[in-house]
Design a binder for these strands. Structure first.
Lengths: 110, 110
DNA sequence: TACTACCCCTTGCTGAACTAGGTATAAGGC
DNA sequence: GCCTTATACCTAGTTCAGCAAGGGGTAGTA
């Protein structure tokens, strides 16, 4: 399929979700993805950071330098109001999509 | 997200499913997709036909000219043994992916 | 001192889907 | 006979997400 283990387009949604509880820096977002999705969805840094910049460029995220929990410089991403709107619509889009997809894939001969 | 309403990579799987009951020509596959997925997943012909050629090139589909139900020339696609194997693994891949995706997207603050 | 974990980034490439066109035939209405 | 609609196939050019494979630098620890 596309790439190795991602259905393209899902990463943006996961990122928005990851920062929905408050500002987070890129590396922490990557860690969260790794933990919650396990080996099923693996996101490389070469995909993660460009995605963050993309979402920032669209105005869905806002970035700000700060200090991480381990006392290092880190760029924190915060969900903008527009980003929260996109998260909401993206969630319902996902639900509709996965519902229809599963329905089709388990359908009997028409 | 990617494109307008597809999660990239799902089309191949849907096509394999569409021909799992027996040979079907491209146009009929498009009609089936339109019917079962409604407006949620819209597949343009400009995406469908290249996808069919792609799957044929991979050896997952075999093509053969024939006559359609409406008495026209049409190219029928049949699932090869390798294609059936791919359908099976694609299905479980989808289940795993959608499970993890939904889990992550509905997760509470960690 | 070396090593690991943390934290950021880019370039070049592949490939799926979109946009926007094109050709041709059968059936049915006028 | 002619026009429209539905059927049935196709391609070229573009966009853009993700991958592979690198890069740099800092804090803490052995």
């Amino acid at each position: 399929m596309a790439g190795s283990d991602l259905f393209t387009g899902s990463l943006d949604l996961l990122i928005l979700k990851a920062v929905s509880w408050g500002p987070r820096h890129g590396y922490a977002i990557g860690q969260w993805l790794k933990q919650t999705t396990g080996e099923v969805i693996s996101v490389q840094e070469g995909a993660l950071y460009p995605a963050l910049h993309r979402l920032e460029r669209r105005g869905w995220l806002a970035e700000e330098w700060g200090i991480s929990e381990t006392n290092r410089e880190a760029k924190f991403y915060r969900l903008t109001p527009e980003g929260r709107k996109q998260l909401k619509s993206g969630l319902s889009r996902w639900q509709e999509f996965s519902r229809v997809m599963t329905l089709s894939l388990t359908a009997d001969q028409p």
